[in-house]
């Protein structure tokens, strides 16, 4: 860890100005990933800008019926927030599938988007890594890549984005609110994280100095039919080998709306709208789910030790969709009976 200076920013504008004014500045929320990266000398910021005085930790209903998560709301407060639990249980479930209670108490919602890959080689300065040091090579290709990506990879990088929360946010079509030197803007969640391509050192589409201030969830929360299925090497405190956020709306047994996003398989939360389209209008059957699953892994590529993820993803998608469809079935049939006296 290098030596650095620290400022507690009093307001968003001031934070952004601090960031612009210092080369090598970094914002710090909960610090649950950044401090680790600094200890390993993977991140060497010269100036840290603390955000805890900004407020931005409210969770509030929006006029359009959606919900705004302040960037500084903790993962724990978000997961256990009554509105989130009631209306976006998929998000609650995804957050609680990640990290540990201690980490979730510290980690912020904005910071969750900014966490970096857990690729072994990214963390170890003794090995080449294009994400850490552009142009040095990708050690995971041809190496130990059991936890690595099978979708959207490039010859430069096969790292995955490690978040669970972001997989749910992708499925729920959240919007990222940011402030920067040129004012405020919003970024659709799908456009926030990047694929590695030839610039794997860039994880997302934030411009220099931009700060996440909040996340907006649309009104549609898929609270009746959802599943976050996380497959990993142990039951807690392990990153996903494959995770699936599945959300459905059903009319009887017909799917009227579907969302499908995967974690642990790509450089970003992997939402597949083509697969979603295959679900809509179809009966909620295992055959339908299998077709969607096949679509998702159509272009998947294994790199040796992660070959198994292709089959695992296929099976996990089917299971997650099935779990989502089977939720509240009794409730639905009652509703159906009530509306057809």
């Amino acid at each position: 860890m290098n030596s650095f200076t620290f400022t507690q920013a009093p307001a968003v504008d001031a934070a952004v100005q601090e960031s612009v004014a210092h080369d090598g500045a970094a914002y710090i929320g909960g610090g649950t990933n950044l401090i680790d990266l600094m200890k390993e000398n993977v991140a060497r910021p010269t100036h840290l800008i603390g955000l805890k005085k900004l407020g931005l930790d409210a969770i509030e209903t929006l006029p359009d019926g959606g919900l705004r998560l302040g960037a500084l709301a903790t993962n724990a407060d978000t997961a256990w927030h009554p509105e989130v639990e009631k209306r976006y249980p998929l998000l609650s479930q995804a957050i609680l599938a990640g990290a540990s209670p201690q980490l979730r108490n510290m980690a912020t919602d904005g910071g969750n988007l900014m966490q970096r890959t857990r690729c072994y080689y990214f963390y170890d300065l003794a090995t080449p890594c294009n994400k850490r040091e552009p142009g040095s090579g990708c050690s995971a290709i041809g190496g130990y890549n059991r936890i690595h990506a099978i979708l959207g990879t490039s010859e430069q990088c096969i790292a995955t984005h490690p978040s669970d929360m972001c997989v749910a946010l992708a499925a729920l079509e959240a919007t990222v609110r940011v402030s920067g030197p040129h004012g405020e803007r919003t970024i659709p969640f799908e456009d926030f994280h990047r694929l590695p391509g030839t610039t794997p050192h860039l994880d997302n589409t934030l411009m220099p100095g931009e700060l996440i201030t909040g996340l907006d969830l649309p009104a549609q929360g898929f609270e009746k039919h959802f599943s976050y299925l996380k497959l990993r090497d142990r039951t807690s405190y392990a990153f996903a080998l494959v995770s699936v956020a599945a959300a459905l709306e059903l009319d009887g047994n017909t799917i009227t709306a579907a969302r499908l996003a995967l974690g642990g398989v790509a450089h970003k939360p992997w939402r597949d709208q083509a697969a979603e389209a295959l679900l809509v209008g179809q009966p909620a059957t295992v055959d339908t789910f299998r077709r969607a699953a096949a679509k998702v892994v159509e272009g998947a590529q294994g790199y040796g030790s992660n070959d198994f993820k292709i089959e695992l993803a296929r099976r996990a998608i089917v299971r997650a969709l099935k779990q989502a469809a089977e939720m509240n079935q009794e409730l639905d049939s009652n509703a159906f009976l009530n509306s057809n006296p």
């Binding site: 072994y120 963390y123 170890d124 003794a126 130990y144 142990r234 039951t235 807690s236 405190y237 392990a238």
Partner: peptide, 28 residues
Amino acid sequence: MEESVMDHRFGRFMNHSLAEYHVPVNAD
């Protein structure tokens, strides 16, 4: 779950942290 994984190209154990060197958690 438990193994120290060596990348023989580097002759180095790569999962050298308790996040990646997996041992059971209570829930297991």
